[in-house]
Nucleic acid binder design. Structure first.
Length: 268
DNA sequence: AGGTCGACCTGGCAGC
DNA sequence: TGCTGCCAGGTCGACC
């Protein structure tokens, strides 16, 4: 489900809604989503106060006053909703001492929640590359990384060891706006094109955050509302429709088992 | 080191 | 109406 802009939107919402709240009760409805034992999970959360809500890549990191961190990966269909709209997809209910509620919903149950004493225990984080909107993701880094790599640039953008947080929608959008074919071997991308990938990554992700994320299918912000970026998507899921630049048909191909949408005429 | 694939799951939708 | 097959925003591990 959510990529960086969606997770960042949820993070900002949660910061407004649950910061400094004390957890009174935890109701584990479906323990499949837990990567800590239910007993430890409850023991760590109940009585703790939320001190910070951070994000790394697509992972939410909720720091507690007891030193533990609640790490949440929403995967494809996870949602964190700050109301009490419990339904059949609700897997976890957190009740605060002021009576407010935070729900974890997940249609497909791919999401993962864990409590860790140190972020080193969360291996996923150790493997992550730079944040795409931070300084260490820059044209020099990109050019050096891709220099000897033959894999298609699209699959590289999806590789979180190269850059964190970019998923299938935004990888397609970035390459479309940079006018670079998703099939191009990374090592055949020039320095100026690497700079363009960097620039368009910033443009697309910032724009998406400004519009509170995309609304494909299941994405909801913490208030349960859809994002507004969908109408700004230029190429994703537009197979057969006219390219906004040349009017030619948008093509769908499969790379590494994932759909890629692009314009074969505009993207070289 | 790259790559592909299947697994993890549920549900919406198109086509017959 | 109901069946089948395909598709879906992520990540990991097995395998070549």
């Amino acid at each position: 489900m959510p990529e960086l802009p969606e997770v960042e939107t949820i993070r900002r919402d949660l910061q407004k809604r649950v910061l400094n709240k004390k957890i009174r009760r935890v109701n584990i409805i479906d323990s499949v989503i837990l990567r800590s034992s239910p007993a430890e999970f409850k023991k760590v959360l109940v009585g703790a106060t939320i001190r910070a809500v951070d994000r790394r890549g697509k992972a939410l990191l909720i720091t507690l006053n007891n030193g533990y961190v609640l790490a949440v990966q929403l995967m494809m269909t996870g949602q964190l909703i700050t109301d009490n709209s419990i339904d059949r997809h609700t897997r976890l209910e957190i009740v605060f001492s002021d009576g407010n509620v935070l729900l974890y919903k997940d249609q497909r149950r791919f999401g993962q929640l864990r409590v860790v004493k140190s972020l080193n225990e969360f291996k996923h984080l150790q493997d992550l590359g730079p944040e795409p909107l931070e300084k260490d993701f820059n044209p020099v880094y990109i050019a050096a990384y891709i220099k000897y790599r033959k894999r298609p640039i699209k699959t590289l953008l999806l590789d979180h060891t190269f850059v964190a947080g970019i998923g299938n929608i935004y990888a397609c959008e970035i390459l479309y706006r940079a006018r670079i074919s998703p099939l191009r071997p990374a090592c055949r991308i020039s320095k100026s094109e690497a700079a363009e990938i960097h620039e368009q990554s910033r443009v697309v992700l910032k724009e998406a955050i400004r519009h509170r994320g995309s609304s494909m299918r299941n994405y909801r912000d913490a208030a349960g509302k859809k994002g507004g970026f969908k109408k700004l998507i230029q190429v994703y899921a537009r197979e057969g429709e006219a390219c906004l630049h040349c009017d030619g048909p948008v093509k769908r191909i499969v790379q590494a088992g994932r759909s890629t949408f692009y314009c074969p005429l505009c993207q070289k």
